[in-house]
């Protein structure tokens, strides 16, 4: 490569980074000011789904792995953090043999961390199985495993089956100085979590590790021939995605003060695919836009019963047939920039 080519590619990189930074700053300012005009509870829900979609996009957009079972991470983390915030016991094994701890109700941040840990562990177990196959098999395996987790959540005592965990306390942080039952405070807490999660994803994608992931997406045999252990990279990305989805799910259960089977059902796995597809697969901001659109649509069309599902199906079909870049992908393509 000539010196000129190097300097121009560095210039492109710098321009790309500048575009992203500007977009990120605009997004942050909009979100920070949004509660003044938009109902905060809606925003908090949308932010949780946006983080969910961004973490999902880390796999499909940058590693090329379509998981059809990401609801298991959202749902499990939601149950674990709701249980920890409300009850705070761990019972594994039988009465005589096993782990039995009683922490009492935990502060929300610690409860969320437990949720993230649970999803990460589940990510290791399911990821190790799923990456043994590629392409559509990967999608079917993740779907089947998440259905297994669904039945686990239906039958396990701590999830309370069909009832779910209700009345989860929102609690206080920093020795009671930050009261999360105040809606505005809760909003900025959720926004902070979202920004942290989003920044982690951005950092990972732009790291050398992220470059290897993208090379696996483009041509896995070649990445292997270059000496990269692609299975380890895929598993690492899978677990990271699972943990970040867990962060979204755990936060969501504290915000909504409940955890239910909806979050672990495979329809939720389909919804996150839809959000990401609508916004734009493999774009940074697409999943956020997609999540806000789908959550808003569900809120406005809640009275139309199953037609919401039909509309979602139509959007799916339309996106796949005619609009594969998604909204943000299309804008970025028209403007010739990367978002």
């Amino acid at each position: 490569m000539t010196a000129h080519a190097i300097s121009s590619s560095a210039a492109i990189d710098a321009a790309k980074r500048r575009d992203e930074l500007i977009a990120f700053a605009v997004l942050f300012l909009v979100l920070a000011a949004a509660p003044a005009v938009i109902y905060p509870f809606f925003l908090m829900q949308a932010l949780c789904f946006a983080l969910f979609a961004c973490a999902f996009n880390l796999l499909i957009g940058y590693v090329g792995l379509l998981s059809f079972g990401h609801a298991m991470f959202l749902g499990l983390a939601g149950y674990v953090s709701a249980h920890m915030a409300k009850v705070g016991t761990i019972d594994i094994g039988s009465a005589n043999f096993g782990i039995h701890l009683n922490f009492g109700p935990m502060n929300p941040l610690v409860a969320i961390l437990f949720g993230v840990a649970a999803s990460a562990i589940l990510g290791v177990l399911t990821g190790a199985l799923a990456i043994r196959r590629q392409g559509i098999y990967f999608a079917m395996i993740t779907l089947a495993l998440s259905q297994m987790i669904y039945f686990f959540c239906l039958q396990a005592p701590f999830t309370h089956g069909e009832d779910g965990i209700q009345g989860v306390p929102q609690g206080k942080l920093l020795l009671g100085h930050i009261d999360l039952s105040q809606q505005t405070t809760m909003y900025y807490f959720v926004l902070a979590i979202f920004v942290v999660g989003f920044a982690i994803i951005h950092r990972v994608v732009n790291s050398p590790f992220g470059d290897v992931l993208k090379s696996i997406r483009e041509n896995e045999p070649r990445a292997i021939s270059l000496g990269y252990k692609s299975d380890q990279y895929k598993l690492a990305a899978f677990v990271l995605s699972a943990a970040l989805v867990g962060l979204a799910g755990a936060t969501k259960s504290i915000v909504a003060q409940n955890a239910s089977l909806t979050d672990v059902h495979f329809a939720m796995s389909g919804e996150v695919v839809l959000m990401t597809l609508v916004g734009g697969l493999g774009t940074f901001f697409g999943p956020i836009v997609g999540a806000f659109i789908i959550v808003a649509m569900q809120n406005y069309l809640a009275g139309f019963g199953q037609w919401v599902q039909v509309i979602q199906g139509v959007i799916f079909v339309a996106c796949v047939l005619a609009f594969r870049r998604g909204i943000v992908g299309e804008i970025a393509h028209r403007l010739g920039i990367s978002l």
Binding site: L66, F68, I136, A139, G270, V273, L277, Q309, V310, Q312, G313, V314, I315, F316, V317, C319, V320, L321
Partner: peptide, 10 residues
């Protein structure tokens, strides 16, 4: 897969 999933929803 995605297209037929959408069809199933419809």
């Amino acid at each position: 897969l995605l297209l037929t999933f959408g069809l199933a929803l419809i």
